[in-house]
Every structure is written in structure tokens, then in C-alpha cells.
Computed example of a mutant assay.
Amino acid sequence: MTVNGSVRHGVDDLAAIRSRIAAQVVGRDRELDLVLAAVAAGRDLILEGPPGTSKSTVLRAITAEWGIPLVLVEGNADLTPSRLVGHHNPSRVLREDYSAANFVDGPLLEAMRGGGFLYVEEFNRAPEDTIDTLLTAMAERVITVPRVGAVAAHPTFRIVASMNPYDNVGTTRLSTSVHDRMCRLVVDYQDAGAEREIVSRRAAPVDMRVTADAVTVTRATRDRDDVRQGSSVRGAIDLALVVGQLCAMRGVTVPAAPGIDPPRDLPTDYTTAFLDAMLVTLSGRIHLDDTAFTTAEGILTEIWQDHFLLNPAAAEPG
């Protein structure tokens, strides 16, 4: 049942939905609570955070649980209002003239008619007139299309936008009108334990030692002054997978050391394979500060040295 755009679940129903979704999402309990509460209350939402922080995973889980579509669109200069709303089929227009029957829905109308979520990634890269079209959809829940008429949104329709706070190249500042119509949630990286769990699930059956090392060095890319934006957990997943393949190909035995303890006395062939895999999987995922006097490869080599050479030595007694 809906009231004024809100999805009226009973308290027990919403709690049960939340519990089922939580089983699919790692390390996002608070964020899941807030996103689910906002969309169930009929609100549109901005998710502000770096890539790879489970924003789309949470939305997919919610829409799947509600049985509604999740319509994804990339915010960029090509996302014009006509691309967003839709267009008349040119060949049919030549034969039949303009009519509602030959109109092809764009992602906005697809989400409105289907009662789904329109998920706009990189929202602040979209042109201003496109954002104005979205404002109309948010405010009125109705879009008027020439030669088609008024299209009213199904009550479960929501607009959810994402923005990356670390990337301001080619972006525009959102107006107060946008912020006035949308709730906002800041989403940061998960903790180390949650990221290890994610990598374990996504890179199975990679060894625990590889998983722990991959997460540790990937997280280290986010803590340097010479790096503007480090790698997300997607980098750790790819790193773990590539290390596993390299070790298998080179005949390297992966150490059976405990997963989260500092590495000690690891074989050189394993650590060498790890460095090679880091350079391949992470060098394109880290974005250096403008004042950095090094390369991505140089930074990754330093992180590798800190993890495999310096930290184990520092951990030894005496």
C-alpha cells in the first residue's frame, strides 16, 4: 500500500525485508537501514561516496526484494533530456507521423512506468537541463511529453543519484533546488574485515593469505598524501584473482600463514608474484595528487615494500 508516495509496509514486514537484504550485503548495516528507510518513506536520494562501496549492490538488493526494476544510467555530457525521457521511432514517424504508439521510452519513463528506481551514476556530470528534467519528475511525479501526453509515475518510482566526492574534474555544483528535493547519505569504504569478506566471496576459492594481503595493500593506497583517490575493493578482488592465477602458472606455492597476521618469512617467489599482480591490477585504479613526484608504479612498489619487507621486520620481537 502507498500513501503520498510512501511504501507502507508494516514494521515487521520492513524489518523482515531489511533482514533478507542484509544477508546479501557485507558491512553496510547502517547504510542499508538509512537507504531502505528513505526509499520506503517515498524520498529520492543522493549517495555520495567513492566507487566500489556497495551503493549499487544495496539498490539492487532492495529493488529485487520489492520486485521492481533498477534502471541504471550514466551521468555525462551525452545524457540529454531526450536521451533521458525518450524519443519517437524515426522510421515509424515517417510512415505514421508522430503518435504515442511510436514513442520509445528512455530510462526515466521506463522507471516511472515500471515503478522502479532510476539510478543516475555520476549525477553531477549530467547537463543542467537534464537535471532540471529530473527535478520535474521528483517534484510532480509526472512528465509531460509532446505528442504523447502526461506520464505519471508508479508510486514506487524513486530517483537515486550517486556522486564521487574525490573527483571534481568535469563536474558541476548541484543547485540548492536539487539538494532541497533529495535526501543525502555519505557512504565511505567498509572496514578491513568487511572487505576481506567481500574479496573472499567474490574471489573464491583464493587462499586466505592472498585475500588478506590483497585487502591490506589495496587499503594502503587510500592512506597516502600523494594519492588523491585510492583503489576500491574491486581492486583487491582483481588483485587476489590475478595473484592466484600467477602463482598457479609459475608453480608458486601460496603460504598457508594465518590470514590477517603480518606476513613473516614469505617465499620470494610469492611476494614477487604479488608485486607483479599489484602493478597490473592497481596501477590504473589509483589517482595521484597533482603535487606527487612519482608514478603509480612507484607508489605501489613502496606499499609492497612496507607490507612484505618492512612491516614483518618491525613485528619481530627485539
Rank of each mutant, 00 (worst) to 15 (best):
A256D: 08
D289Q: 10
F293G: 09
V252Q: 01
H287T: 10
G251Y: 00
D261Y: 03
D265G: 04
A248F: 04
T271K: 05
L288P: 07
T281W: 02
T268V: 15
P267M: 14
M249Q: 06
G244C: 07
C247I: 06
V252Y: 12
D261L: 09
T268Q: 15
M278V: 08
A273T: 15
A273H: 04
P255G: 11
L279V: 00
D269K: 12
C247V: 10
D290Q: 10
T268M: 15
V252W: 00
A292L: 00
L288I: 12
A257F: 11
D261G: 00
T294P: 06
F274E: 11
P262A: 00
T268Y: 11
L246E: 09
L288V: 13
I286F: 01
F293N: 08
A277W: 04
F274H: 09
R285H: 03
D290M: 11
L246I: 12
Q245T: 13
A277N: 11
M249H: 07
C247K: 00
A257D: 14
A292Y: 05
D265C: 05
L288C: 11
A292I: 03
P267W: 13
L279C: 05
A256G: 15
D289V: 13
V243N: 00
G284A: 09
V254D: 05
V280W: 11
T295K: 00
Y270D: 08
L288H: 12
D290W: 14
F274Q: 09
V254R: 08
F274R: 03
F293W: 08
M278H: 06
D289I: 10
V280T: 06
P262N: 02
L279Q: 06
T295Y: 06
A292G: 01
R264M: 09
G251K: 06
M249L: 07
L266M: 14
I260P: 01
L275T: 15
L279E: 09
A256Q: 12
M278C: 09
L266N: 03
P262M: 00
H287M: 07
D269M: 01
I286H: 02
H287G: 01
I260K: 05
R285G: 10
P262V: 02
A273D: 06
G251H: 07
P258E: 05
C247H: 01
G259I: 08
T295H: 08
R264Y: 12
D290A: 13
C247T: 12
V254I: 13
L279R: 06
P262K: 01
A248K: 13
P258L: 12
L282R: 07
I286D: 00
V252C: 08
R250D: 00
L275D: 14
V280A: 08
L275I: 15
G244Y: 03
V252S: 11
I260G: 12
P262G: 04
R285D: 13
D289P: 10
D276E: 15
D289T: 14
D261F: 06
A248W: 04
M278L: 00
P255T: 09
F293L: 11
G244N: 12
T295A: 03
L266A: 09
